[in-house]
Simulated scan of single mutants.
Amino acid sequence: MAHHNGTRKKTRYKLKKDLRRRGIVPVTAVIQQFEIGQKVHVVCEPSIQKGMPNRRFHGKTGTVMGQRGRAWVLSIRDGDKDKVVIARPQHLKAQR
């Protein structure tokens, strides 16, 4: 039998929207701008698959290192290492 190890494996509950949050994403989530060095939360938006970071970074907080096209380059502490994650703004929220 084949291996079924896709990028969204074991995400049935993690990448599921609440009933009242379903539908299209507001434009303000797409046009967000961040400063270099700003802290942001990674909260994956399941209705948009492009630019979605890996499921292991869902719920983590990272620092903005720069921009690459429409996406943002983040540095996230994972265990004892700093990982570089590229994510689009729909999957990011500014820390307050």
Rank of each mutant, 00 (worst) to 15 (best):
R56K: 13
V27R: 13
G51C: 05
L92W: 05
V84H: 00
S75K: 11
R22N: 10
R88E: 08
V27Y: 15
G23H: 08
Q67N: 06
I24L: 14
K93Y: 11
G69F: 01
M52Q: 13
K83W: 08
D78A: 10
A87F: 01
G59F: 09
Q38V: 12
Q33V: 15
R88V: 10
G59P: 04
W72S: 02
P26R: 06
P89D: 04
T63I: 15
V42P: 01
T28F: 09
G23S: 11
I24H: 14
V64R: 00
I36Y: 03
K39D: 12
F34D: 04
G51Y: 04
G23T: 08
V43G: 12
T63C: 07
A71R: 08
P46L: 09
R68G: 04
V73Y: 01
M65V: 10
R21V: 13
R70W: 03
I31D: 13
N54C: 14
V40P: 02
R70H: 08
V25M: 12
P53M: 06
P53D: 06
R77E: 13
S47R: 11
K93V: 07
D82L: 10
I86K: 06
L92G: 05
R21I: 12
F57R: 00
V73K: 01
R21N: 15
R22C: 12
A71N: 10
V64Y: 01
H91W: 05
Q38C: 10
F57V: 07
V42A: 03
I31Y: 13
D78V: 10
P46C: 10
I48G: 00
K93A: 11
I36W: 00
K81W: 04
M52V: 07
V25R: 11
V40W: 03
T63G: 01
G62L: 01
I24E: 15
K50D: 11
T63M: 07
V30Y: 15
G62N: 00
V30A: 14
I31T: 15
V43Y: 11
Q49P: 06
T28H: 10
V84K: 02
N54Y: 08
K39Y: 12
G59I: 09
F57N: 00
R55W: 04
S75R: 10
A29F: 13
G66S: 06
A29L: 14
Q90T: 14
D80H: 10
L74E: 00
V30N: 12
Q38N: 04
P89L: 01
T28P: 00
R68W: 02
V64H: 00
V27I: 15
Q67A: 05
F57K: 02
G69C: 03
D80Y: 07
T61Q: 06
S47W: 05
D82R: 11
V27M: 14
D80A: 07
Q67Y: 03
V40I: 09
K81E: 12
S75D: 08
F34V: 11
G23N: 11
E45R: 06
K60M: 13
R68P: 00
R21G: 12
K50W: 08
Q33W: 11
I86T: 13
G51E: 04
K81A: 09
G37M: 07
P26M: 10
I24C: 13
P89T: 05
R68K: 15
L92Y: 04
V85P: 02
Q90P: 06
P53F: 03
R56F: 09
W72G: 02
G62V: 03
P89F: 03
H91D: 03
I24V: 13
